[in-house]
């Protein structure tokens, strides 16, 4: 990846930024967008050493005074299932789904359509279901991500997972993690949903096998389990 190699221009830009930083100290390392250096500190978070960052980004020195600088690769920290994960050298085009599956081995969320249409990649972001295929990994920083793996309580299944087993709510199973995540979000907000509410909540997930009736039944069974604490 030659574009990430340090170049004399980069070094010069680094020096200029160091001087700029000295004039305008960055408070608590938050991403200020004012300089590449402070930005990287922010993106990297406290858990990631900023070593290896020097020269890890590419900036045209001529653009340095032309507004806030950006990055072409950066170290990031993601909070997944309650745990902070440092991920090094992430390109901005990398999606959250990519990082989950290929860098961190959370393979519950599935890549299927990869254009925000099928729901197989659904994860919770701050408690709400989103499509991990269409959210940039860098955009997920600072948010709480929960994947289908994170619904487990030790070795015990989540009530929603229990309900999917009980109702035999899957055929090939590829869409199942996405449905489980969507149902988990639904029953956390509404433990007595009508069939219509279930359908609306699951309208962003597709099942090519067509097991919708069983999935809807599982959602209502899950809600009952949550309601009754079983």
């Amino acid at each position: 990846m030659p574009e990430h190699e340090s170049t004399p221009d980069d070094t010069r830009a680094d020096l200029e930024e160091e001087q700029a930083d000295a004039r305008e100290p960055d408070e608590d390392g938050a991403a200020s967008g004012m300089s590449r250096r402070s930005f990287i500190k922010g993106v990297g978070g406290t858990a990631v050493a900023t070593a290896a960052m020097s020269g890890a980004t590419e900036t045209d020195a001529a653009e340095a005074s032309d507004g806030p600088d950006g990055v072409r690769v950066a170290n990031i920290t993601l909070s997944i299932n309650g745990e902070a994960h440092a991920v090094s050298r992430v390109e901005p085009r990398t999606t959250l789904l990519d990082v989950l599956r290929n860098r961190l081995e959370y393979t519950g969320a599935k890549p299927v359509c990869e254009r925000a249409s099928c729901g197989a990649c659904s994860v919770l972001l701050d408690g709400k279901p989103v499509y991990a295929c269409s959210i940039l990994a860098m955009d997920a920083e600072g948010h709480e991500i929960v994947t289908v793996e994170g619904l487990l309580d030790g070795d015990s299944l989540h009530p929603v997972q229990e309900a999917f087993v009980e109702e035999d709510a899957l055929m090939c199973g590829f869409c199942t993690p996405g449905f489980v995540v969507s149902v988990a979000a639904l029953v956390a907000e509404n433990d007595d949903p009508t069939l219509d509410e279930v359908k609306k909540a699951l309208s962003g997930n597709l099942c090519r096998c067509g097991t919708y009736t069983r999935v809807f039944a599982a959602a209502q069974t899950a809600a009952r389990r949550v309601r009754e604490g079983t």
């Binding site: 991403a31 967008g33 922010g42 072409r72 901005p92």
Partner: peptide
């Protein structure tokens, strides 16, 4: 791939 910018303010975003 692209360059990714995180502006702090509307003014920075516009810039």
């Amino acid at each position: 791939n692209f360059e990714y910018v995180r502006p702090d303010s509307v003014a920075q975003a516009v810039q």
